[in-house]
């Protein structure tokens, strides 16, 4: 299909190598020093972005990234992502994090998609990560689809293949390390991506410079988004209590270790 567009809904999350410590900030929980933590593009949304970039190369359509996050953090992440693939950013400024309600996020994301100038939804695929690394709920994209009236939806997607008539094949992850193979008659559709098969593209400063010309104004124009939900209350947030007493076994023979492992595997 020619000129098929892709809109990627992509949040940002703290770098997973950082220590995360929950704190109560006013009504809602948050992370200690959240604004100081380096952030990255939500990993599965990142895969969605790289897959989308390949797809629009094929179709000649446009690639949009829709994101909600604290402006300063969005800017930090975009400096890196902008170097990867060409896209247009549409952003809203809000303290979105793991304790924001996915319904509020979905409503705001759908609003941003509606604001994209001249976007023909019937010729557009909506991408994102199937679960975020913050809430990990897998619910946001479903609701974005519902709000926009898109009821062909796929989650845990590892592959899409377009046909000349606009139809496409999708592989979705299902239980037991298998894939469900479906065929959809065409856009619009929602695809929540798992890892896909594409590696992360290398940095390309040229693409970065071109992207930043539109990304900076988009960030400046990012309006505050209201994510409040008085009907949701976190009664407590905590780190896992259990830290194991690791027994470190050195200086015994491989035979003895093997026997211990066998005994352990066989024990009930």
């Amino acid at each position: 299909m020619t000129n098929l567009n892709v809109v990627v809904c992509a949040g940002i999350v703290p770098d997973p190598l950082q220590t995360l410590d929950p704190v109560q900030t006013g009504e809602k929980p948050g992370l200690r020093n959240e604004m100081m933590l380096p952030h990255v593009l939500d990993p599965w949304a990142g895969h969605a972005l790289y897959e989308a970039a390949e797809l629009v190369k094929e179709t000649g359509g446009k690639l949009y990234v829709v994101s909600i996050g604290p402006k300063a953090k969005l800017q930090q992440v975009m400096m890196t992502i902008a170097q990867k693939v060409p896209f247009q950013l549409i952003a809203a400024d809000a303290a979105a994090g793991g304790f924001s309600d996915s319904k509020q996020i979905a409503v705001q994301l759908a609003e941003l998609v509606k604001q994209i100038d001249g976007l023909d939804l019937s010729n557009t695929l909506l991408f994102g990560g199937w679960e975020s690394a913050s809430r990990g709920a897998g619910t946001t994209l479903q609701m974005v689809g519902e709000i926009l009236g898109v009821t062909d939806q796929f989650q845990g997607v590892d592959k899409i293949s377009l046909n000349d008539d606009g139809s496409f094949k999708v592989l979705e992850r299902i239980e037991g390390g298998k894939h469900l193979h479906s065929s959809c008659s065409g856009a619009p559709a929602v695809l929540g991506w798992a890892t896909g098969y594409l590696p992360e593209p290398p940095n390309n400063p040229q693409i970065g410079m071109t992207n930043m010309r539109t990304i900076m104004p988009a960030l400046q124009q990012a309006k505050p988004a209201d994510l409040e939900n008085p009907e949701l209350t976190f009664t407590a947030v905590e780190l896992p209590k259990q830290k194991r007493d690791t027994k470190i076994v050195k200086d015994i023979s491989a035979d003895e270790i093997a026997q211990e492992i066998i005994d352990w595997i066989k024990s009930k």
Partner: peptide, 25 residues
């Protein structure tokens, strides 16, 4: 059940933080 309300638990940040929450909706 806490103070008569249903409270559910789930993991956030990919199993790193355990949260307990309730909803009125």
């Amino acid at each position: 059940i806490e103070n008569g309300d249903l409270v559910v638990s789930r993991w956030h940040y990919r199993q790193r933080i355990l949260a307990h929450l309730k909803r009125s909706q």
